[in-house]
Design a protein around this nucleic acid. Structure first.
Length: 686
DNA sequence: GAGTTTGAAACT
DNA sequence: CAGTTTCAAACTC
């Protein structure tokens, strides 16, 4: 993402160019701050000399992009106040907000570098420290340099926020800085527009790219929209992604409207955010769904939008339940939330309804097969035919997965007993849990608990079921071509339920039992352990399952008017997948998420295989070429053979002799991407 | 809605 | 690692 091309945004080179643009003029007209000429750049640049290398690069290793996000977030506290009126009272507010954010962020145990910054003696020179890194970035950054100077920019910027009252020069410089941000935003917007016109399909990359850029200066544009500082109210929000994915949309639309001379309000703009193109919708929704609203204050902003855009409301409902795991560097990949996608699967209405109500599908299932032949035109294709048993099963699984709420009383929702917690999700209002700690306000506890659990069992949060619907090649090279090839990772241990009730995890997941199971008297209708397969013949049981699932989800059905077309092309799980996980999923779905990989390379170190972008396993958007899906990069955390890395995973089996291998049940053609349970890196530090 | 059953998760 | 306990969902009435 940080290509040398972006260096053209160096203020001294192209400032005037953007100043002449209509968009810039429009934005400029909204800003009370006079344009500060770029000659200040010299001052800023020279200021680098006053910064020791250690101050510029306090802890590169620790300063992952995640952490930088916090810094970015803090930067938001700065920008609004500055852009609005760089006066002392506003400065005070900004500092207060920053301090608040810092206090919150400071709780993160792994945020060592952050603490270092807080205590950085350079606090006394916030302004100088603010600009120099950017100068470094655009002037000195070498190709392939993984270090993102924005981290330092933002850190130092935040330092400046919390710093003392600024001199007129500093304020002026802030104005210039804002100007720069605007320019960069505009540049990115232009890029987006070009992409939309030309490529179109690369919206994921474009938006994410824009997001990265816009976030830094988003306050400017955002403020222009509503005429008030909204970001200040977002002080409790700790997820950078919540901002990075939210503002680009607002900003992009704001700018679009500005460019077209349309001074419509934010509502209209937000509305337009989901009306660009169908494909864009999906991407946008995916982005927005990632937004975590950690605090109520963060929700205030969304609530504003809610009044004018129902879709925003729906997104909020989904957003707020997602954990922000990027805050925890090194946190294990949770495939729980992998999309429960099956070919041509448009989300059932109940599933969509669930999404709209903040519900989530069964996170225990990871569908990793893709249909390479599916074209975008088939997104959310007509799935009216639910008559076949296969589809009934599929529907059953989908509907069973649609709702995930807990009722924990003693576990505080911090154990795997809690479905929400196990799924990597925060508990939400529909949950009836007691003394719940699985909430954003207890994020540290949640993260730490997860860390502990994963230290015991690295696969604890891995998907319990690997679903593959076609061409399942196990470790021995055998191929399963049946839906029953989807198997529970560890198998069940049922003794009384005969694997015919949802006590059985296999049954609950809609998969057959396998040799991994230690069940007794298995009669799993999705595939018996002993090789039997009660498929079509077991219609009664299946229908009972469906009824069960339907009843379970009947309460969350929404009106048709609430359906989101763009959501239908997305997996609800991928939408809720913690961003960091999605980044890691990039390693598992290198082809399907190629566009994403291109843009979020700064997510964390080793970005080549872990991106902050949202990998879209949904081939609807990124069809996987037939000849590309068979090769899977051997990620360090991905074992193609189900060799358990944890003693607790002893039952993980590749089920080479799975009884259902020869089943004739023909699910739709799909391509298996991931062959086995990934061996997730342990949370425990090395 | 209360009570029971069930099996996974956690604990020893 | 096996046995036991705890837990919450699933189920039944």
């Amino acid at each position: 993402m940080d290509t040398p091309d972006k260096t053209h945004l160096t203020p001294t080179s192209n400032l005037s160019k953007f100043e002449d643009s209509p968009v810039f003029k429009y934005i400029d007209s909204l800003s009370p701050i006079e344009l500060a000429k770029s000659k200040q750049t010299d001052n800023v640049f020279s200021s680098v000399a006053f910064l020791s290398p250690s101050s510029l690069f306090p802890s590169p290793q620790i300063s992952s992009h995640r952490e930088s996000r916090f810094s970015v977030k803090r930067h938001h506290f700065l920008s609004p106040s500055n852009s609005k009126a760089p006066q002392s009272d506003h400065e005070s507010n900004a500092s207060e907000g920053a301090s608040k954010a810092d206090e919150h962020l400071g709780c993160l145990k792994n945020d060592c570098s952050y603490k270092g910054i807080s205590s950085d003696p350079l606090n006394d020179q916030p302004v100088l420290a603010t600009e120099s890194p950017r100068t470094l970035k655009y002037d000195c950054k070498s190709l392939g340099d993984s270090f993102d100077p924005r981290d330092e920019i933002l850190k130092n910027t935040s330092v400046g926020v919390a710093g003392e009252e600024r001199s007129p020069f500093q304020r002026n410089r802030d104005g210039w800085e804002k100007r720069q941000l605007q320019e960069r935003d505009l540049g990115k917007i232009c890029s987006v527009k070009q992409i939309e016109e030309s490529a179109g399909i690369d919206w994921v990359a474009a938006l994410s790219d824009v997001a990265d850029m816009l976030t830094m200066g988003s306050s400017i544009i955002h403020e222009n929209t509503d005429g008030q500082d909204q970001r200040t109210a977002d002080s409790g929000t700790t997820s950078f992604m919540s901002t990075i994915m939210q503002f680009p949309l607002d900003n992009a639309n704001n700018l679009e409207n500005a460019e077209s001379g349309d001074p419509s309000g934010s509502c209209k703009q937000n509305e337009s955010a989901v009306s660009v193109t169908d494909r864009t919708r999906g991407i946008l929704s995916t982005c927005l769904l990632d937004k975590l609203v950690v605090s109520d204050s963060g929700l205030k902003k969304d609530d504003k939008e809610e009044n004018c855009n129902q879709s925003s409301h729906q997104q909020v409902s989904i957003r707020r339940r997602c954990l922000v795991f990027e805050k925890s560097p090194g946190f294990g990949l949770h495939l729980n939330s992998l999309p429960n996608i099956t070919k041509g699967q448009s989300l059932s209405k109940s599933t969509l309804s669930s999404m709209d109500k903040g519900e989530v599908p069964d996170n225990k299932i990871a569908v990793i097969a893709e249909n390479s032949s599916e074209t975008p035109a088939t997104f959310g294709g007509n799935e009216s035919d639910h008559s076949s048993p296969e589809k009934k099963r599929q529907k059953f699984v989908e509907e069973s997965a649609a709702c995930k709420r807990c009722n924990c009383k003693r576990s505080k929702c911090l154990k795997l007993y809690c479905d929400c917690f196990a799924a990597g999700l925060y508990c939400i209002e529909p949950c009836a849990c007691q003394d719940c700690f699985n909430k954003p306000i207890h994020e540290n506890v949640v993260l730490e608990t997860r860390r502990q659990i994963e230290s015991r069992n690295p696969l604890a949060f891995a998907p319990k079921v690997i679903r593959s619907t076609d061409g399942v090649s196990d470790s021995l090279g055998e191929t399963n071509k049946t839906p029953a090839s989807s198997r529970h990772k560890r198998g069940c241990n049922c003794k009384r339920s005969s694997c015919l009730k949802k006590y059985c995890e296999c049954f609950q997941a809609g998969v057959g039992c396998s040799l991994s199971c230690r069940c007794e008297g298995c009669k799993n209708s999705f595939g018996r352990k002993d090789g039997g397969y009660e498929s079509e013949s077991d219609g009664d049981n299946l229908e009972a399952c469906e009824r069960n699932a339907s009843e379970k989800n009947s309460e969350i059905v929404i009106s048709k008017g609430q359906e989101h077309p763009h959501l239908s092309v997305l997996s609800p799980d991928i939408s809720r997948l913690p961003f960091a996980y999605r980044g890691k999923l990039a390693a598992f779905f290198p082809h399907s998420i190629k566009p994403s990989l291109q843009l979020c390379s700064t997510q964390e170190q080793g970005s080549s295989d872990s991106s902050s972008c949202q990998p879209r396993s949904d081939s609807n958007l990124h069809g996987i070429p037939e000849n590309e899906t068979t090769e899977i990069p051997k990620h360090k955390g991905l074992t193609l053979v189900s060799k358990p890395t944890s003693p607790n995973c002893k039952r993980v089996s590749s089920t080479p002799n799975h009884p259902c291998t020869s089943s004739s049940l023909a699910w739709r053609s799909r391509k298996l991407v991931l062959r086995s349970i990934p061996s997730f890196p342990s949370l425990a530090p090395p």
